[in-house]
Write a protein that binds this DNA or RNA. Structure first.
Length: 286
DNA sequence: AGTGTGTCCTGTGTGC
DNA sequence: TGCACACAGGACACAC
């Protein structure tokens, strides 16, 4: 689902509704999403105050005054919506923001201090939530092997070179590897490779030096621009405020199979790499 | 160790 | 119109 820019957009939408406020109640419509909810999940959240909402890669991290952190992943189709008042679903006129389309998939509902309701809707249920002790974050299984954030000082051409050294896998797969750089998904990998004029089939090991610099620059730029645009809205992604992102109108290759490359080359091609679509221009990406 | 495939789940779009 | 099938933004557990 949502990649880093979409998750960041959701974070910015949730923050004003949740930061500084107490969670008054948590309603679970089922025992699991992708994984079972952890032991006593609702009880551990009830009464906790959210001190801050952070993001790491594609994970949302709600910091609680109980010294635990609520980790949330949107999977492919997860989205949040915010509405006014507990039980707002029974009061259709009361929505502050548009609710998710199909209430059957509202799996988690948070009643938030100040008469707000935050609902998590996820038709495919690839998303998940868990709790961990904030002090033990370095050992958290989902977080411990993540690579640098694209906008951090730790991310650079040099660090890409190092991560790619000796790897015989295509650079498409290399950039999707969250331990190389955190937060990229299928869309932004395609876009970054096009900007850097690098073929998605090129092996990681063949991207040292200047090429790696170019790629790191492209990754940083595409992510920054997408965040500025509020992310991309394709099928079921929307910001927490229900607004559509509009970066999808800026795609250079993603979803443009058969259309002209924006550099004036031939048509954009779609290929399949490790089971997923890759869009690229075979003329200018080498 | 590193890499490719199958898998979880539902909804939507396409082609027959 | 109805149906079958491919495909979808992720990431894990496996087999090799």
């Amino acid at each position: 689902m949502p990649e880093l820019p979409e998750v960041e957009t959701v974070r910015r939408g949730l923050a004003p509704a949740m930061e500084g406020r107490r969670i008054e109640a948590v309603h679970l419509a089922r025992p699991d999403l992708r994984f079972p909810f952890p032991d006593r999940f609702a009880q551990r959240l009830t009464g906790a105050r959210v001190t801050r909402i952070d993001r790491r890669a594609k994970y949302l991290l709600a910091r609680l005054d109980t010294d635990e952190t609520l980790l949330m992943h949107l999977g492919m189709s997860g989205r949040f919506s915010i509405s006014a008042g507990p039980h707002a679903a029974a009061r259709p006129g009361a929505f502050v923001y548009a609710p998710a389309a199909d209430p059957r998939h509202d799996h988690v509902v948070f009643d938030i201090e100040g008469a707000l309701t935050v609902s998590y809707n996820d038709p495919r249920r690839f998303g998940f939530m868990t709790l961990f002790a904030t002090a033990g974050e370095e050992a958290q299984p989902f977080l411990k092997s993540l690579g640098p954030e694209p906008d951090s000082n730790r991310f650079s051409g040099a660090c890409l070179s190092e991560a790619f050294a000796g790897r015989r896998t295509p650079v498409k797969a290399g950039l999707l590897d969250q331990s190389v750089v955190a937060g990229l998904g299928n869309i932004y990998v395609c876009e970054a490779l096009w900007r850097a004029r690098i073929s998605p089939r090129r092996l990681c090991a063949s991207i040292p030096g200047a090429r790696a610099e170019r790629l790191a620059t492209a990754v940083r730029a595409v992510i920054a621009e997408a965040i500025s645009a509020g992310g991309s809205t394709l099928r079921d992604y929307a910001g927490a405020d229900g607004a559509m992102g509009y970066f999808q109108h800026s795609f250079d290759v993603y979803g443009r199979e058969g259309e002209a490359c924006r550099r004036g080359c031939g048509p954009v091609m779609r290929i399949v790499q490790s089971g997923r679509s890759t869009f690229h221009c075979p003329a200018c990406q080498r």
